[in-house]
């Protein structure tokens, strides 16, 4: 199946990706939940605006590890470029998270492709649903087991670094040859669920072109990983840069940076 993933840039990567899969298997009944989970109906109502029509769509590709090796950093990549209908937002939900809504991506003039990381404590599906007016909601996803299995299974408990050190530091790069843009922000992304640590997370990140016009936007929520890195794909004209990145968090801090080709 066609995808905008770049696995093929690595030796044997295309064959390995084909074997690895990514996303749900083709479904016989498009409006039945391939994960057969009770949360899906609830989350459609709560986070997707109760779309009148929806389908499980294997063209919504979702790459994840099969096991959450490191429960605080589970890498996810969503590719909706295989859809032929328009996409105005992509909503990421985690079925069995105490805070199920991870983020809402408004691709705008970027491609409907996004890489990010989430926290994952409980085995279950993560879903990416593409929404636009006048077309059915299209859902893809993957089941992630919360069991690790490494030599140090599970990932060794993390000691919390002092978040103020390097707080807000932004790293990034534009890759004109592939149109990729990657940006990382040092941020604790505290959920507020841990004792004595109030919620403090990024709420919004925007990409702007040289004229200051918006390219794409993300609304971020607590399940996104600490020190998040986001991966975008831009069309050739925008990939020439420069691109400005602006972000805000729940405590009113603002962050900005710029990448050039």
């Amino acid at each position: 199946m066609m995808s905008a993933f770049l696995c093929d840039r690595l030796a044997n990567g295309a064959a390995a990706l084909a074997q690895y899969g990514g996303g749900i298997a083709p479904v016989t009944a498009p409006d039945s939940d391939p994960f057969d989970s009770g949360m899906w109906e609830l989350h459609r109502l709560e986070y997707l605006g109760d779309p009148p029509d929806w389908r499980a769509d294997p063209r919504m590709r979702v790459l994840t590890p099969r096991n959450a090796e490191d429960a605080s950093h589970v890498p996810i990549m969503v590719d909706a470029t295989g859809l032929t209908d328009p996409v105005t937002r992509i909503v990421i939900t985690i079925d069995y998270s105490p805070l199920p809504l991870a983020l809402i991506f408004h691709p705008g003039r970027a491609l409907p492709l996004l890489g990010f990381g989430v926290k994952y404590e409980i085995a279950g599906p993560i879903r990416a649903t593409a929404l636009a007016d006048g077309v059915p909601a299209r859902m893809g996803g993957a089941f992630i087991d919360a069991m690790g299995g490494g030599c140090s299974a599970p990932a060794v408990a993390h000691t919390r670094p002092d978040w103020q050190q390097g707080f807000g530091e932004m790293r990034g790069r534009l890759f004109p040859d592939s149109g990729r843009l990657r940006v990382n922000i040092r941020h604790p992304m505290d959920t507020g669920l841990a004792d004595g640590i109030p919620a403090h997370h990024l709420t919004d990140l925007q990409l702007l072109d040289a004229q200051g016009a918006p390219i794409a936007r993300i609304e971020l929520r607590h399940p996104v990983e600490e020190n998040p890195t986001l991966t975008f794909a831009l069309p050739p004209d925008l990939a020439l840069g420069p691109v400005r990145i602006e972000a805000r968090d729940s405590n009113g801090y603002r962050f900005s940076g710029e990448v050039r080709a």
């Binding site: 696995c7 690895y20 990514g22 590890p65 690790g148």
Partner: peptide, 29 residues
């Protein structure tokens, strides 16, 4: 090259080591 970690994982281990015991899982981890 601008790959995200999920893509790098799905691209699998270095071909010459794909057949080692515990791969591809150990590479994924």
């Amino acid at each position: 090259l601008g790959l995200a970690p999920a893509e790098t994982l799905a691209a699998g281990p270095m071909p010459e080591f794909a057949g080692l015991g515990a791969n591809p899982e150990e590479y994924h981890r």
